[in-house]
């Protein structure tokens, strides 16, 4: 887990993204318990209400669910949902911007494919 919080974006969104990352990478397996809002607050030195907002965002999306009196847990099937969501974002964030930059530099589709293979070999 990284400690760096970026002050130029809403923090609750970043907290939600951290939890998503942990679920995708298996650090938070499905049906495992998520840290409490107070634990997030003291770990990242953020306001507990902000941490709760991040957690609740994922509850609304069905990624996390609440067990009354115990805490928040990762829902079964959450990982697959998140991976799909991230693939969509990957296309927008990386592929589209990469193609724009490639066009600027006059890189052809073939050259681009070559580059991806070269990167993959590393």
């Amino acid at each position: 887990m990284t400690l760096i919080i970026d002050d130029s974006r809403p923090i609750f969104v970043q907290i939600a993204e951290r939890i998503e990352d942990d679920i995708i990478q298996g650090r938070l397996p499905e049906e495992s318990q998520v840290p409490s809002k107070n634990e997030f607050a003291s770990f990242y030195q953020i306001n507990p209400a902000t941490a709760a907002k991040g957690v609740n965002l994922l509850v609304d999306e069905g990624i996390l669910y609440k067990k009354r009196g115990i805490g928040m847990f990762v829902a079964t099937g959450a990982r697959a949902v998140l991976v799909e969501k991230r693939k969509e974002q990957f296309f927008e964030q990386y592929v589209v911007t990469m193609l724009m930059e490639a066009e600027k530099l006059g890189i052809s589709a073939d050259q681009l494919t070559d580059m991806i293979r070269r990167g993959d070999a590393k």
Binding site: I5, D7, I11, K37, N38, A41, S42, Y44, Q45, I46, N47, P48, T50
Partner: peptide
Amino acid sequence: IEDYSENPRTIVLSTHLIDEVSRL
């Protein structure tokens, strides 16, 4: 933050060090 989490209360921070406290 630790104590506030356990014992919520109204807190006002007046400061110039906005970057340091903003996330609290």
